[in-house]
Design a protein around this nucleic acid. Structure first.
Lengths: 223, 223
DNA sequence: TCTCGTTCCAAACGTTCGTTCGAATGCCGG
DNA sequence: CCGGCATTCGAACGAACGTTTGGAACGAGA
């Protein structure tokens, strides 16, 4: 009711062509946050609309269904993440005359999601949402994960160019392993790590983690 | 209410000491299978009891609640998996006079879950269940994941012994990366890999995958 | 044979969920 | 000022869920 605080208009969803996208934006922001924190199934449409300060029917009116809302957020965020990664890969390619070294290719793959996960980053919630949606999402989300590999192709090709003597099969497998390392960066996994190391690993910032992951994966590729 | 039968004498669901544990065993087997295939939230108590051919109330009678059932299966299977891993580590330790090399330590960590995932293995469903429960489980499950690290301690210590010059902090991080690689072995991730490689990676058996993972992780540790 | 505790069963309870509906509201071109 | 349209709103619907209940069935020990 009345005027909503209207937060987060710029960085997120563009102005769009519609007359008023405030409700849609509020739903998207609230849904992403709640999904990221509690999980997809533990957040009801009522939770979302209450958090957003909009009517219960808004979700179905603007997005069609709850699943479609999840898919919409997932699509936006993964596209944005892929853009960040691709941009870094292009920069590395330009820097090295079309043949970037393995480490920089892997950095383009790792750095965006790691930076997003930084507590100080506005995309931290988005990264958590992506991770959750990847494992809790509907069939439509899983279908996208399974089949949409176009954004990974340039990375695989760059790696094959950087490692011409390595069979393509091996490149794909090692890329798979690397992606596994990246996707494992959830809160619960970090908590376990810190518990195992008695807190020894707790004071590691993004840059240190990135360096460690790069060292590990690069060695795996170059061995 | 009243005294519950006090279950769990044997690893799986053999005769047990109870007069008749057929219902419990049927529920456990059906629940594990359905949970592994469809996901925890997409399986209702009705689905489980129908599949098991028992009464709807059986789950709550024998286990207390649906969440408690999930927790029970998770506890059994992870304990069994940890036993397999620990046994392999002990064998490697005995083989090398108390100082097993990095590769054999990592093999003890990787081989059991990989063998379980083999289509021909009876534990394939259990492995899929564990992976699903790790990300979809209740707070109780997540609490166990977060805090119960006792079974990983021997592996961390063995690695530190094998790599005395590597700071413990690094050992913990690289162990974290390795576990990420292992946990990434879900159906959807494999499908994506095969889609990316145009089927080039499809005909890889467990032994080949184990060798690839070992090569990759060992290089990361030894670099 | 009787008794009592354990297990099983059909039925229902109460809640929560995603979704839908019809009316009300606000906005803008004419 | 008015008519049309997109949006918002309160309210309800119907389904699915986990759980509970009271009694029936069963089996072993007295």
């Amino acid at each position: 009711m009345s005027t909503r605080p209207l937060q987060d208009p710029a960085p997120d969803l563009p102005p769009e062509t519609e007359r008023d996208a405030a409700t849609k934006a509020a739903v998207l922001a609230a849904a992403e946050r709640l999904f990221a924190v509690r999980g997809l199934r533990c957040v009801s449409v009522r939770d979302i609309t209450a958090e957003a300060g909009v009517n219960l029917a808004s979700v179905n009116y603007h997005f069609g269904s709850k699943d479609a809302l999840v898919f919409e957020i997932f699509r936006r965020r993964t596209a944005e993440l892929s853009r960040d990664r691709t941009r870094m890969l292009h920069e590395a390619t330009a820097r090295h005359d079309g043949k970037p070294p393995v480490r920089e290719i892997l950095a383009a793959l790792m750095e965006p999601p790691l930076r997003w996960s930084n507590p100080a980053n506005v995309r931290r919630i988005s990264m958590q949402f992506i991770i959750r949606a990847r494992s809790e999402g509907s069939e439509a989300v899983r279908e996208v994960i399974r089949t949409d590999v176009s954004h990974l192709r340039p990375f695989a090709e760059a790696l094959m160019t950087a490692l011409p003597s390595l069979p393509p099969e091996e490149v794909y497998w090692r890329l798979h392993f690397t992606l596994g390392m990246i996707h494992n960066n959830r809160f619960a996994e970090f908590d376990r790590l810190h518990a195992l190391s008695d807190g020894l690993t707790r004071d590691s910032d993004v840059d240190a983690l990135l360096k460690r992951m790069l060292d590990f994966a690069e060695a795996g590729f170059l061995r």
